[in-house]
Amino acid sequence: MIRFENVSFSYGKEPVLRDVSFHVKPGETVVVLGISGSGKSTILKLIAGLVQPDSGRVLINGHEMTTASEDEWSRVRPKIGFVFQGGALFDSMTVGENIGFTLIEHTDKTMDEIEVTVRETLRFLNLSEDLIDILPDSLSGGMQRRVSIGRAVAAVDPMIMLYDEPTTGLDPISTEAITELILKLQSVKGVSSIVVTHQITDAFEVTNHFIVLHDGVMVFDGPGEKLVQVQDERVQSFLAPFMQSVKNIPAVCPEE
């Protein structure tokens, strides 16, 4: 589904990713872990075509997207749902307009048809339909993230979902709601997902395939059981603060 082959990327002279390679299978969820500034979000931007790698290849469904034209990207992008850190909801539009945004922009559906889809999506998100005419500023952080997920899934059934720090800064109840939503999308719609986070306890709730980045270098790619046992100093230093809560991980890991 998604394949990175020796991808390197830099912002100006500052290297962000160095020779990163990994593979995400169809329907699989992968969590990318790492401290801030390790290049996690850049992986998502490369998949969505928001930035282009300096070297290496990014393949989606076997098609190389590194050299794709804007037309090819415009066909692929509607199939990719991107949940930005902080939501990135359009603050001048209502919740309904945000969720229906891609339907309004990319389809010929009438406003009545779009409203039906928006209401279905709100129910899917476990949000009240009364929120449809409310501006995003009036919502809590957790609700904004859920609406952001709704905006990503409402248009067409996405084949890839990209989550950039979806639970950062949220209270435990909102975090649980977002985690449930990620799992629900995975099981109901069968999408391939990449979740970027530095909150390892939440990460074990959604998958058992982990990638760890350190200074733009991929230092681990494998299952959760191996992650907690790996001897690499860079992985251990990242895991150390979380080890106390990670003790019970094998019990919560989804079965492979």
């Binding site: 969505a48 928001l50 992008r77 509607p78 930005f84 902080g86 891609t102």
Partner: peptide, 17 residues
């Protein structure tokens, strides 16, 4: 500028706009 700093411009691009 506000849209840029709150990632709304990136969101537009990500949704093919």
């Amino acid at each position: 500028g506000s849209m840029k700093s709150s990632e709304q411009i990136e969101a537009l691009r990500a949704f093919g706009i």
